[in-house]
Design a protein around this nucleic acid. Structure first.
Length: 491
RNA sequence: GCUCGUAUAGUGUAGUGGCCCAUCAUGAAGGACUCUCAUUCCUUCGACCCGGGUUCAAAUCCCGGUACGAGCACCA
C-alpha cells in the first residue's frame, strides 16, 4: 500500500520561529488589546502584554488597543501621570503607536447601558446581600433571595444605586449564571458595585465624583471587548476564570467570545516581588528616587539603565506564550541586550580606583586606539602622550608587568612605568589606561542586589550625547547619563 | 475545601502518534580570532515528572499519582 502523506510529512522539520500561529485569524482583521491599570507606569511584566499583543497585531496586520482599566478608585487608584507615560512607553516598546486608546472611566455610560439591558432582559439582578452572606450562598450552592427579583424591581433598585439611595456595600449587580455550577468562581458573579467617590474621587479630571456605580473588571472588560470588536485576547492564566465568567455573559447577550490564549507567571530570579501599589508607596515615602530608580523593575528604570526596546521584545517573544510558570535569570535579558548594542557601542576607558603613574622612555606624541575594534571605519580615539601622568586601575598597578592596551609593554616600579617594548613581546595582561589630560573625574552608577553603588574613577573624555550606549573596556556596557556619569547596564 | 491549569537539558523553548537515541537559544567547559574579562566563530556537556493503559508505534492520546501555580474580592 502506498502512503504518500507520510512522505510529504518527512520534509518539514524546521523549528517554528517566533510567536505561535493565531487561531481563527484573518490577515488585516485581527484586533487585540492590552489593558493595564494605570495605577503606575509600566513594569517589566506589563511589557509582556504589550509586546506579545502588539507583535501579533503587527504580524497579522491588525490593530492593538491600549485600554486603561481604571475602574477602581479605592483599592488601586489610578495615577494621573500614568496614562500618558504608559502611552509613551507603549510606543517606545513597540516601535509604533497603539492604534486605539480606550479609557474605561470615560465609557461608564456604555457600561450602564449594558447593565440596564441585562436587568431588563432578566439575566442580571441587583443583590443586596453582603459579601459574607453571599459567600455562604456560593459555597452551599443556594440561590440568594434577590435572585428572584422582578425585572421591574431590579430596575428600581438599580436606580437606587445610581441616585445614592444605596451606599457602597448595600448592593451589587450580579450576572445570573447558575448557583450549582461546578466552579464556585462562576456562580452569579458580581458585575458592578458602588464606590464612595466623594471620599475617594477618581483622579481623572471630569470623572472625579461623577459616578457612584462602577463596573468590575469582568463586566467592563467583557463589554468593552465586544464594543471594540476584539478578536483575540492574550492574557495571564490567572484570568482563566475571567474568560469563563465572561463567556457566560456573552451567551446571555448573544455575542461570541474572542479566541483566548494564556501565559503563565514569570519571575525574575534576581528580583523580589514588586507590586505597583507597593512601589508607589515606597517612591512616595522616598525609599526610591522615582519610577525610574535603577533598582526598580519598571520600564522607565530599565530604559534608563540601557535596556533597549528590541532586547525586551526579543526576550518576551522568545519566552513565548506557554502556560508554564517560569523563573528566568536576568542575564537572559542581558544576553539579548548585548546582541542589540555591542555593534554600536563605542569603546571607552573608565578607570576604577585610579592610580596615577608616570611613563618613562621614548615614545610618540600620540596614541590612537579604535573607537570600535570591529569597525575600523568608525575612527580612533587619540590619547595625548605629553610628559603628563597616566591612569591605570589599582588592580593593574599591583602587577609587575602589563601591556597598556594599544600602546606598549611596560614594567611597573612604584609609580614609574618603564617602557619595555612597543610591539607585544610576551603574554603579559593587557590593561586599559588613559593619560590624565584625556580624562576627567567620573562616576559609574551600578544598581545591584537592590542597592546603588556609585563608583568614582577617571573616565576618558567624550562628547557622546545622553543616552548613548558605550562599552567601558574590561568592565561592561553602560549608558551615558552626562559627560561624567555612566549608568552600568550589564557586563 | 471546591474549581481550573501546567509538567522536555541548569534556565527558557520547538515538538500535537512514526521525521526524535528529541530543536533552538542561553549557560557551563574547552578552543579559534582579537592589543578589552567585549563581539564573532568552532567543539563538548546536558532533558521528555512517576506509574499504568491504548497502539505495530507515545515526549505526543487515556487513566492514576506527584509537584508546582492560579481562581473562588463589592481589586485589576
Amino acid at each position: 500500500m502506498e502512503a504518500p502523506h507520510l512522505l510529504e510529512k518527512r520534509e518539514k522539520k524546521e523549528r517554528r520561529e517566533g510567536l505561535p500561529e493565531l487561531k481563527n485569524a484573518t490577515k488585516g482583521k485581527v484586533v487585540l488589546r492590552f489593558a493595564p491599570n494605570p495605577n503606575g507606569p509600566m513594569s517589566f511584566g506589563h511589557a509582556r502584554g504589550m509586546v506579545i499583543n502588539g507583535s501579533y497585531a503587527k504580524e497579522w496586520d491588525g490593530e492593538i488597543i491600549l485600554r486603561f482599566d481604571d475602574t477602581d478608585a479605592v483599592v488601586k487608584p489610578p495615577l494621573p501621570s500614568a496614562y500618558e507615560q504608559i502611552e509613551r512607553e507603549a510606543e517606545w516598546l513597540l516601535g509604533f503607536k497603539p492604534h486605539r486608546i480606550v479609557i474605561a472611566s470615560e465609557r461608564i455610560p456604555q457600561y450602564y447601558q449594558h447593565a440596564e439591558d441585562m436587568l431588563q432582559r432578566g439575566f442580571g439582578y441587583v443583590c443586596q446581600c453582603s459579601g459574607e452572606v453571599f459567600r455562604e450562598f456560593r459555597v452551599s450552592k443556594t440561590e440568594c433571595p434577590c435572585r428572584n427579583n422582578s425585572e421591574r424591581l431590579n430596575i428600581e433598585l438599580w436606580n437606587n444605586m445610581l441616585d445614592g439611595t444605596f451606599k457602597p456595600g448595600d448592593a451589587v449587580v450580579r450576572v445570573k449564571t447558575a448557583m450549582d455550577l461546578k466552579n464556585p468562581a462562576l456562580r452569579d458573579w458580581p458585575a458592578l458595585r458602588m464606590q464612595d467617590t466623594v471620599q475617594h474621587p477618581h483622579p481623572r479630571p471630569g470623572i472625579g465624583s461623577k459616578y457612584r456605580v462602577w463596573p468590575l473588571l469582568d463586566f467592563q472588560s467583557a463589554v468593552e471587548d465586544h464594543l471594540q470588536g476584539v478578536t483575540h485576547i492574550i492574557r495571564g492564566k490567572d484570568l482563566m476564570d475571567s474568560t469563563r465568567k465572561q463567556t457566560l455573559l456573552y451567551q446571555h447577550f448573544g455575542w461570541s467570545y474572542p479566541e483566548t490564549i494564556y501565559w503563565g507567571r514569570v519571575k525574575v530570579h534576581e528580583w523580589g516581588g514588586f507590586s505597583t501599589s507597593q512601589m508607589r508607596r515606597d517612591i512616595e515615602s522616598g525609599e526610591f528616587s522615582g519610577w525610574d530608580d535603577p533598582r526598580l523593575p519598571t520600564l522607565s528604570a530599565l530604559k534608563k539603565r540601557g535596556i533597549t526596546a528590541s532586547a525586551l521584545r526579543n526576550f518576551w517573544i522568545e519566552l513565548g506564550v506557554t502556560q508554564k510558570d517560569i523563573s528566568v535569570p536576568i542575564s537572559s535579558l542581558f544576553a539579548h541586550n548585548i546582541k542589540c548594542i555591542d555593534d554600536d557601542a563605542p569603546r571607552l576607558a573608565f578607570i576604577r580606583e585610579p592610580c596615577k603613574v608616570q611613563l618613562v622612555g621614548e615614545h610618540d606624541g600620540t596614541v590612537d586606539v579604535d573607537v570600535h575594534p570591529n569597525h575600523p571605519t568608525r575612527g580612533v580615539r587619540t590619547f595625548t602622550m605629553d610628559q603628563g601622568p597616566l591612569w591605570i586601575e589599582r588592580e593593574d598597578f599591583e602587577k609587575q608587568s602589563i601591556r597598556l592596551k594599544g600602546f606598549a609593554d611596560v614594567s611597573t616600579t612604584g609609580e614609574i612605568l618603564t617602557i619595555d617594548s612597543f610591539p607585544r613581546s610576551d603574554r603579559r595582561p593587557i590593561v586599559h589606561w588613559a593619560p590624565d589630560v584625556n580624562t576627567k573625574d567620573a562616576t559609574l552608577i551600578v544598581a545591584e542586589d537592590g542597592e546603588i553603588h556609585r563608583i568614582q574613577g577617571r573616565m576618558e573624555s567624550h562628547e557622546y550625547p545622553v543616552g548613548t550606549m558605550v562599552q567601558l573596556e574590561r568592565i561592561g556596557y553602560g549608558r551615558v547619563l552626562d559627560d561624567s556619569t555612566v549608568v552600568f547596564t550589564h557586563a
